[in-house]
Design a protein around this nucleic acid. Structure first.
Lengths: 325, 325
DNA sequence: GTGAAAGCGCTAACAC
DNA sequence: GTGTTAGCGCTTTCAC
């Protein structure tokens, strides 16, 4: 920078102003500086800028699993709003291990990023708030009622209700639910399922999945074990689980939806594939990321006030796995 | 840090050593420092560490599209090897726009990350090398023969050869290929296709796709337009394209594989779904990310020598879309 | 508008 | 082992 200043015949401060595109710089000086930068191949060291300015122009994104499309959609949505504003997204991976989860979050804090977006956090609100300190933050896909944190969620309970009501409307009475692991903090879809079942006067049949394809596969074996009363419809925690269930049902020679109707959750691209045709709940994940980005940037720039919670309305996509044809 | 030192009754240098877990620190002093840190709620400012140490413990990852599973797999693979070594992955999004692509790459360079992994870069080798300067780097999914950059690729040409040879072995003679957009730098699968066709003495029939489902759908319409000699098999650039092709073929009442056999590329999860049963080439994407991570870390730590190119062997997964049953 | 000076919070030599 | 001394490369007052 010193060299650039010398080359352009100006002071270092002016160089700083030019590279930051600050106003009030005489065009000729600006040109001289830019020429010098070009000539010397100078590149600004953002690390130093950040240290000096206390602004990193980076927001951290904590996600449970980047390969899970719901998180990559969130990441993309977040980048959609954050990048045009000149910030970058730094992604770190979370974990189902509490210690690793905290470490991942702390690494973001230590970096002094301008703000942190958290998706798929599994721990407790108090721990989260403590490690975040007073860094602007937004939590996505989860909501802590008493927390001062901004949050963006999809209305999971309603989504589940839509799904189960759809099955009830189709005349099903034995409707099972393959849930998320019960120790994970995602009870809303289960609650929606139980609510509709109770409202319809039906007996719920709940079985635990593992969020993955394998969980759906195994759950079907349990649900359809000999001697048990078989469900005629299954509402699955997510599409991956539903795909596992479908695979096992296919193997068992049960037809979908004639013998068993299936509903998933997430409305992943593959659910919409012709050959798959899985009825699923769209929770508008990319919008979750975008809204999260807006909330976060608002807070970073100090234009936001109070704690805000955004809740998006899910939508049921009806396909062949429930209505045939 | 000053405060911590005072609280613990030691010098700032000692505090620095303790937080970096350096050896040669007396246990009692270490404890005193840790206690002081705990008491004062001190958190190291990594920005300052990085500036002073010229080590960021961060590797940048440039990807074309984070929602594309091949890139999220690569990201995950990279993180698998990089995180245990104490580094983080900073992901930036590339673009099909050359200017935006360069900007994304430069933002990584300006951050002075320890190394950069590039996946899905569409520009030219010279531009890439110029903007990377002498930062340790590895390029993935692409290879520049004359470049000094390390690279990790899957052997795309061989993958395509496996796929097409499989179709030839099944007795097909009119085999079409729905390729990537011709302006993208991914000619290898096309080359493999042409090679096998020529070796088998068959006439190639090439049509351009767009990497997406829609491209496959539209391509089928062109391939099966009235008056043209219809192919009996189609080799698609990727699975998404294949899914689009299958959807259109289903609509047209053509049976797979009886009327038309289909092969995809990527071996995505959904290709393996029972209902889909798409024969596809597995290019071991996660391993690409892992190998990239190892190459990169080796170069960063100076243990690597010379330019290295790793090429992974793809594998053909045969399913019902070619053999029926 | 422009230049000088004082940090940002840490690491790294180097003597002690 | 421990403390002292310079920086790392910028940004940011604040006079001019």
């Amino acid at each position: 920078m010193e060299d650039v200043a010398a080359e352009a015949g100006v002071s270092r401060a002016l160089v700083s102003l030019v590279i930051r595109n600050a106003p009030h710089v005489r065009p000729d000086k600006r040109k001289a500086v830019n020429d010098a930068i070009e000539k010397l191949g100078y590149r600004r060291n953002r690390l130093a800028s950040r240290l000096a300015s206390h602004r990193t122009n980076t927001v951290g994104l904590f996600v449970l699993d980047i390969r899970n499309t719901i998180y990559s959609d969130i990441a993309d949505g977040l980048a959609d709003v954050v990048e045009p504003l000149g910030s970058q997204v730094l992604i770190v991976r979370g974990s189902r291990d509490a210690e690793a989860e905290r470490a991942a979050l702390e690494s973001l804090v230590d970096l002094r990023v301008d703000g942190i977006a958290v998706a798929g956090y599994l721990g407790r609100a108090s721990t989260l708030e403590k490690t975040l300190g007073d860094i602007p933050a937004v939590i996505m896909t989860r909501h802590f009622p008493l927390s001062p944190l901004d949050s963006v969620t999809s209305h999971d309970e309603r989504g589940a209700e839509l799904a189960v009501q759809h099955l009830v409307d189709l005349g099903h009475s034995r409707i099972a639910h393959i849930s998320a692991p019960l120790d994970l903090p995602y009870p809303d879809r289960r609650a929606g399922y139980l609510e509709i079942m109770s409202r319809a006067g039906l007996t719920p049949q709940l079985i635990e999945g593992d969020l993955r394809e394998s969980g759906g596969y195994d759950a079907v074996d349990k649900l359809f074990a000999a001697g048990r009363e078989r469900p005629t419809a299954v509402f699955c925690f997510n599409d991956a689980t539903a795909f596992g269930a479908m695979r096992r049902l296919d193997e068992l020679g049960l037809r979908i939806p004639d013998d068993v109707a299936i509903v998933g959750y997430d409305d992943t691209t593959e659910a919409g594939f012709h050959r798959v045709g899985l009825t699923s709940v769209n929770q508008r994940t990319r919008e979750v990321g975008q809204q999260g980005g807006e909330l976060l940037m608002g807070r970073i720039n100090g234009t936001a006030t109070g704690s805000r919670g955004v809740r998006l309305e899910p939508e049921l996509k009806i396909r062949r796995s429930t209505i045939g044809g």
